[in-house]
Amino acid sequence: MVAVDGLGWWGVPLAIFAGAIRVSTPYLLVSLGECITEKSGRINLGLEGVLIMGAMAGYGTSLATGSAWAGVLAAGLVGALLGLLHGLLCSLRRVNDIAIGISIMLFGTGLAFFLGKPLVQPQAPMLNAIPFGFWSSSPQIQSALQINPLFLIGIVLAVVLHYAFRYTRWGMQLRIVGDSADAALALGLRVLPTRILATVIGGFLAGVGGAFLSLYYPGSWNEGLSSGQGIIAVALVIFARWEPLRCLWASLLFGGAGALGPALQAMGITSGYYLFNAAPYVLTLGILIATGSPSRTLAGAPGELSLVRN
């Protein structure tokens, strides 16, 4: 929690800025992963479960090995495994990707609660942040500019993906598979393996996003750790119109909304605590309502995506 008392009311925007960066990191990683998956023509609603499994696996591995980065890697691998499960099951005929996603959401959550039971008490090594605020003498600013490397990795990834989707062979193949399976087949592309791989990568990133939750902010493992961040990230990809760079801005916006409750609470305003904490859901829904339309498909949507073919 950022100490805001010294700066008075100015502490609120500062706390929201600092909070936005911290809270947005899981959104950023999960939404970039989901962006890759959805570009291939599939939607993985199970990322909520993957996120929680990643948080649990990351925390447990960090505790066992003493290295938080080993935890991040383990979380990614667990996420990739769940992504593989989703990708394989969706490849069966007549199996609906939305339904599989819901089942993976419940399965991942249940499994993480089961395996994570012994992890509630002990304290695992945390990820370290990079102190970008070293130049300032104000402890508030120093604390606000503590930035986690995973956030920076997310920014780099967003830029790389932005160009990869447009200019690389791999990116173009992925988009063709996602836009029209028939066209992809005609070009001799392998549709199912591409989609499975895209879901595995999406699962990996969502797992890493989970590790950020348990190993940095809020930085502990408990059953209330994630409450819908995975689902919000899926909705965020729609808002970002399947563009990695817009995912970055949208994540920051959602991070700011998510930081509103804790920032006001730190100021001593506790009465509307639950309502402020619901801000990200209201924002997500508001954006979906404002940008949606019943008559046309969304601009930029991959053609094979079941989500937009109501």
Partner: peptide, 8 residues
């Protein structure tokens, strides 16, 4: 409004 009912 074209909002997917599952997510909504």
């Amino acid at each position: 409004r074209g909002v997917n009912e599952t997510i909504g």
